[in-house]
Design a protein around this nucleic acid. Sequence first.
DNA 1: CATAATCCATACTGTAGCGTATGGAAAGAG
DNA 2: CTCTTTCCATACGCTACAGTATGGATTATG
Lengths: 191, 191
Amino acid sequence: METKAAKTPRVALDREAWIKGAIAILAEHGAERLRVEVLAKRLGVTKGSFYWHFKDRRDLQNAVLQFWRDGRIHDIRKQTQAEPGGEAAALLHTIEVYSSARNRKGIAIEAAVRDWARRDPQAVAVVEEVDAERLACACRLFRACKLDEHEAQARSLLLYAYVFGVSLMRPGSFAGDLASLRTWIAGHIAR
Amino acid sequence: METKAAKTPRVALDREAWIKGAIAILAEHGAERLRVEVLAKRLGVTKGSFYWHFKDRRDLQNAVLQFWRDGRIHDIRKQTQAEPGGEAAALLHTIEVYSSARNRKGIAIEAAVRDWARRDPQAVAVVEEVDAERLACACRLFRACKLDEHEAQARSLLLYAYVFGVSLMRPGSFAGDLASLRTWIAGHIAR
DNA sequence: CATAATCCATACTGTAGCGTATGGAAAGAG
DNA sequence: CTCTTTCCATACGCTACAGTATGGATTATG
């Protein structure tokens, strides 16, 4: 009749497997279309399994938000630890990471979570935490570059607003060399 | 025979009324939750009416996108027409418009359409048209400020990426005076 | 081996929403 | 007035999905 799941006998999904699958859907289709039956099918099981691991859909959503928050905070701390003298390079690196095509999925998740935060208070709280940490880290780097507190804050805000904003835009055939524009911009922000 | 809805008898919704209602839902709940039955209820009718004015849901979505595109292109041309010497002020004004709290709904629509464009090809096309027009208009202003083509393009891209990006962020209690940060940033972008 | 705990499938109820079919009321045309 | 067009209501079938109930199968444990 049908498959016996010959590939992997008795895998036993755990919570994290569900969360990672959920994040994949989040990146591809957004928070609104994160549905338990769809996710279950993606993982090759039925929702009978889901409701053993999670109380309900909300439970999964919160778990996804926590997971994302922890990952982002861990990442930003790693990316912004620079040896003395390398702070400017670390700033440019941060900009590059968010503009990079090789980080497509990460950017998609970022956008999905931020859109999610437009309607969900839990998502708002998580995004605020992540933003606060990122702004604080960037601010430290700018201050290490001898900028005063106000300018460091302003440049930090500009930095993240730019990287998030540019991922929403479709410059299309705007410029001949988009890459050189981005390089100019990165320099103008990090200077 | 224009806007003859005096008392209440036989109001007769037209296509534009549906589109405007749809945009309100778009701003409040996003494209994914733009549903015809919900919209009908909002307008005080049933979907029997909807399917007289529109072929299907997709027909409404396309109409919404066209309407939004036409409005944005009209707006940006209006905002960026400056008398000689007023180009820098026009640029600052553009930044201010998108950052302003009194434009909350416009910003919400903007964000919704851009998120929409992450999955819908029609929305992608419209966003590309609008972005192209905006970038071109901003570019003209920067060039009028005696900047070379490359820098004008770079600053234009930075300008719009920033204004869209900042609307996605939750600076929370990041800075003591967020307004002064924005003023600094606006100056740094517009030069 | 026997029993319990773990993990998942199946079946069911209930709601939301899309699209269609059809009838009915209001307004204009003759 | 009658007839037609316009605009909307009602009723229907269908799909997607949330959550619950229950049983079955696998694995761990005494």
